[in-house]
Design a protein around this nucleic acid. Structure first.
Lengths: 121, 121
DNA sequence: GCCAGTATATGCGTGACGCCAATATGCCGG
DNA sequence: CCGGCATATTGGCGTCACGCATATACTGGC
C-alpha cells in the first residue's frame, strides 16, 4: 500500500484544499459526499470543491486510511439509502491537526506581513 | 491573458499550497526563488515546496499577474547576478488577502471541531 | 410530465506535481 | 587545488489530480 512506515503524518502535508475540507467536515461528525459539499457551501462563499474532485478525493483518502466507511451505511434510514457515509480515522485526525498547525503558522506569518486586517478570531 | 473581467479575485481560490507560500514570502518583501524556499524552511519544518514546483509556480503566477519581476534585477549587486527577484502585485496582494480570509474561516471551523488545541495566536 | 434538488460515478483532456539530473558559481576544508 | 557543499535556476519524465461535462437514479413540487 505504500504505507511509508516512518514519517506517517508529514507524508501527507501539505493537504490539498479539498482534502482539508473533507477532514474538517468529518471531524465534526459523519457525513456523506454531498453533505460535505453542502458544508463547504455553508462555511464560506468561495472555493466549493467540484463534485468530481470531491468524490475522487473521498476514494483516495479512504485508500490512504485518512477516512473510513461509516457503519451507518449498514442501517440506512428512510431516504438515505443512496448515501455513502464516511468517518474520520485516527490517522486522519492526526493529519488534520498537523495541517491545522501548518496553516496556523502560515496565518501567523500572514499577520506579520500585514496580509490580514479585519479577520477576527 | 485570460483575465476574466468579472470575479477577478475568487477565480484564483483556493490557492495551491505553493502559491500561498510564494505570496506570503513576497508580501514581506522582494525575494528570489531560492529565498522563498529558505523562507519556507525557516517558517515551519514541514512541507517545503519542491524546487521544480516552486520555479514553475513562479512563472505561472507571473503570467497570471500575481507577481512581477523586480527592478532589482536590473542592478544586481555582487553575488546576486544569477538571482531573479520577484515582487507581489496589487492583484497578488488582493488574492493573498482573500485566501487568508478563506483560511481564517477554515481555522475557525477547525477550532469549532476541536481540531486545534495548543495553537496560540 | 418536467424541472430542480439530491446523490454518486466516470470519461476526457490539460496541467501541476514530485523526483531527478544538468548547469554554473562561490566558498571552505583538507 | 580539488572535491564537496551551498547557492541558484532550469528542464525532462511519468504520474496523478484537477475541472468540466455527462450519466444514472430517485424524490418532490407545480
Amino acid at each position: 500500500m505504500g504505507m511509508d512506515r516512518d514519517r506517517p503524518i508529514e507524508r501527507f502535508l501539505p493537504l490539498r484544499p479539498v482534502e482539508f475540507d473533507v477532514l474538517l467536515s468529518l471531524a465534526a461528525g459523519e457525513r456523506h459526499g454531498y453533505g460535505i459539499i453542502q458544508d463547504a457551501e455553508a462555511r464560506g462563499v468561495t472555493a466549493v470543491p467540484d463534485v468530481g474532485t470531491l468524490y475522487r478525493a473521498l476514494r483516495r483518502m479512504q485508500d490512504q486510511g485518512l477516512i473510513g466507511a461509516s457503519a451507518r451505511r449498514e442501517a440506512p434510514e428512510a431516504g438515505e439509502e443512496r448515501r455513502h457515509y464516511y468517518r474520520i480515522t485516527a490517522l486522519g485526525l492526526q493529519v488534520a491537526r498537523a495541517e491545522a498547525r501548518r496553516l496556523a503558522a502560515l496565518m501567523r506569518a500572514a499577520a506579520a506581513s500585514g496580509l490580514i486586517e479585519g479577520v477576527a478570531t
